[in-house]
């Protein structure tokens, strides 16, 4: 009767979303084990042991986990997971790839993108791009769940859980990692940034020129609409929305964004939303705490300058 959380890290740090999954796990009031997979990842296992709420760290260190493949991680998680009540992780690209494989092999359902756990097997999750909240109950003996990290608090550090080594099964050979191309930026990670400055297609070629300085003022992250990304004005990985990244920062700037349903799905849980748009009838204003109807090419630099003082 314990919970097994699949941890995620970048080789240096455990992800904030993994910590938030530990908070989510507290709903069950059961021992929480954190599984760290990696190569030369002792540092990560130590960090995992320090997260308040973690009872034990399972550390699988193997060469094939330098770039962990879903096929290999799921094989390990399936093998370990049979003894657990709950297999949990944050709803990230990594876990979204791994956990369904585990659920399928264990022949149990999976509950994705949970925003609230209301009973040991009852969950609230958004459907239809967040237009509806669905409460579902799972009847399976092992619960496989991913949580929306932004819906759960970040736990403190100051723990020293036991770390035990677990053996990894041999690599499956079904897939092979070739390369990755991560956008190197000194900005915080979009999904966990305190401030997000997002722009729509109307910014055009001036997307970076206008929004970078504003984001810089807050040490915030940049976001964009799908239309803006599709038009090539912003990179794919900063798309905010139903099918992109879901954010819920303290402060969200929607600049030149009309407010399509699919975009709202990715940001409407932000604490404070500021909308700047020249169109007074844009739907985004119905969701904004503070709306400014103005030409964004004038007021964005003005706002950036005003924040200097």
């Amino acid at each position: 009767m314990s919970i097994l959380i699949l941890a995620e890290h970048d080789g240096k740090h455990i992800k904030q979303s993994t910590r938030q999954a530990v908070t989510a796990a507290s709903a069950w009031q059961l021992p929480v084990h954190l599984l760290v997979v990696g190569a030369q990842s002792g540092v990560i296992a130590q960090q995992a042991a320090e997260v308040t709420g973690v009872t034990k760290v399972l550390h699988a260190d193997a060469a094939q986990f330098e770039h962990p493949l879903a096929e290999d991680v799921s094989a390990l998680l399936t093998q370990l997971g049979r003894d657990y009540t709950v297999i949990l992780s944050a709803h990230t690209a990594f876990s979204k790839s791994v956990l369904p494989r585990v659920a399928a092999v264990l022949d149990v359902a999976m509950v994705s993108d949970v925003i609230s756990i209301t009973a040991p097997a009852t969950y609230v999750r958004p459907i239809y791009a967040g237009n509806v909240l669905s409460t579902v109950e799972s009847s399976d003996a092992i619960q496989v769940v991913t949580i929306r990290a932004t819906s759960f608090a970040v736990p403190a550090n100051g723990n020293s859980a036991e770390v035990v080594t677990v053996a990894a099964p041999a690599a499956s050979g079904l897939s092979r990692w070739i390369k990755e191309d991560k956008n190197v930026s000194d900005r915080p990670e979009l999904s966990s940034a305190r401030v997000v400055v997002s722009g729509g297609r109307s910014l055009g070629e001036r997307f970076d020129e206008l929004l970078e300085p504003l984001a810089h003022k807050f040490g915030g992250a940049l976001g964009a609409t799908r239309a803006c990304v599709d038009a090539g004005f912003a990179p794919n990985d900063i798309q905010v929305g139903q099918t992109g990244t879901i954010v819920a920062p303290e402060l969200y700037f929607a600049i030149g964004i009309s407010g399509a349903m699919q975009h709202l799905a990715g940001m409407k849980d932000s604490k404070i939303i500021v909308a700047i748009n020249h169109d007074a009838d844009a739907p985004i204003f119905q969701h904004a705490d503070y709306g400014l109807v103005a030409n964004l090419f004038d007021v964005v630099p003005e706002l950036t300058a005003a924040l200097n003082n």
Binding site: A109, N131, S138, V274, G291, E302
Partner: peptide, 27 residues
Amino acid sequence: PRLKQLKAADPEPRKPGIKVANVAELV
């Protein structure tokens, strides 16, 4: 089906916001 839907509901609406007149008021 292994998952049973107990309820479907509209999300809590955000409290209505306000329009500001200019950058100074926004800040």
